[in-house]
Design a protein around this nucleic acid. Structure first.
Lengths: 230, 230
DNA sequence: ACGCTATTCGTACTTTGTACGATACGCAAG
DNA sequence: CTTGCGTATCGTACAAAGTACGAATAGCGT
């Protein structure tokens, strides 16, 4: 044991991270999916990204599906829970904004979030906290179900559009729009033309700005309904 | 040319449909995706389904992406346009219900609907009609953008959940829920347990029922907002 | 009846998920 | 320090999928 042999035996690899774990696999998977998208995401590329050979991964997870399970759970873990020390509306606003941010950061995630039969701990914790927020504010089980359903439908749908729209604003939007305008019989779709030219392509337009409007609309409406239903 | 050679030359194939076209390809693709899902959807299986060899397809469409473009456009074509002879709320209600039905019939579609740069005619017609409905009712361009965004976010998000939730109600729900309940530290997530046992697993619960509540909530709220904004 | 053109097909190369068996490396006992 | 063992890692291989390339074929006008 010469002092030169300073590299701990448990870690080698010039970056010093030898012990591959399921967690490291999942983290790498999320990072890779963020970069190249979920369709281009393959075990081989993941292996490269982690600095390992493809089959090594299969000693830590049973198959690709299990990796996806873990990825979804990690995404849930990144979403802020509704704070417990404020009114329900503010609390839900916080978690909704956070959720939008997280889903925007992981554009591949929205279609997967509600598709897992094997929910992870972070996923369960998240749902428990949101349900608890409504219940604590006096929502009936029915009202809680209603509220959670509308809000999440909006959140997932909005995130899905943000993620998949070819462009959501700025200069690329002009590119895409003009591209489409060319092959579109312009006068056959007057409202579409008007909306595109007169609104979407106007400076300052950002699809993302519709988020605040929609979320507030829904929260306002819930607040009003709640007096009757809760 | 014996009279036996009765099979018409333009059509052979015991079903009598020889001339393969891009439309037939897309129709077959939609049907196949409905049956086996978009992930299992392959050119080879599509070829089998159409009764043709894989490479034949590529003489009618340039690549798989173009088939998906066509599929999305066909889905749009199946959605009822908002009627022009009723108030905007009723008209939007009609198209929204239809959209939900169509997206439920094609569970693979929601994540793809807004992702195409090459929009088809049916797609353009659809958007033009919806925009026209709002504008005709006196919505400003701003208000139209707001309204269209909230409603479609809700519709896509709801459809996404209906499509991907492992179960949405009935007896399968009990199966899935008990499965999950087993591995879940029951008392660590009290609200989740309460909601599951006391509401979701109660007889008569159907996630799909949340659709009407959510859509009405949003339309009510828009109606109220419109007086100020339009 | 005959060849021309567009359609269809056979074959093959690449990429992906993953099974199987061989290797190698960290650690406890001598 | 040496020896052996169990586990993490890897090399190789096979099946399924997208699609390029060129051969075969079928229906049309002459």
């Amino acid at each position: 044991m010469s002092p030169q042999k300073a590299e701990a035996p448990k870690v080698d690899d010039e970056a010093g991270r030898r012990p591959l774990t399921a967690e490291r696999v999942v983290e790498g998977a999320v990072g890779l999916a963020d970069e190249i998208g979920i369709d281009a995401f393959t075990i081989r590329k993941l292996a490269d990204a982690i600095g390992v050979k493809p089959m090594t991964i299969y000693h830590h997870v049973p198959n690709k599906e299990a990796i996806v399970d873990g990825m979804v759970n990690q995404v849930f873990s990144e979403i802020d829970l509704p704070p417990t020390d404020v009114d329900w509306r503010s609390a839900i606003l916080v978690r909704s904004r956070s959720m939008r941010q997280v889903l925007a950061k992981h554009p591949w995630a929205s279609p997967l979030m509600e598709s897992r039969t094997a929910a992870g701990m972070a996923t369960l914790r998240h749902h428990d906290a949101v349900l608890g927020c409504f219940r604590g504010a006096g929502f009936s089980l029915q009202a809680t179900g209603h509220a959670y359903a509308v809000i999440d439908a909006f959140l997932y749908g909005f995130a899905l559009q943000e993620a998949t729209l070819p462009a959501t604003g700025g200069p690329e939007m002009a590119e895409v729009a003009s591209q489409m305008a060319e092959q579109m019989p312009a006068d056959e779709f007057p409202h579409l033309a008007e909306f595109t030219m007169g609104h979407v392509l106007q400076p300052g337009y950002e699809f993302g700005d519709e988020f605040a409007f929609g979320l507030n609309l829904i929260l306002d409406a819930l607040e009003r309904t709640v007096e009757v239903t809760k």
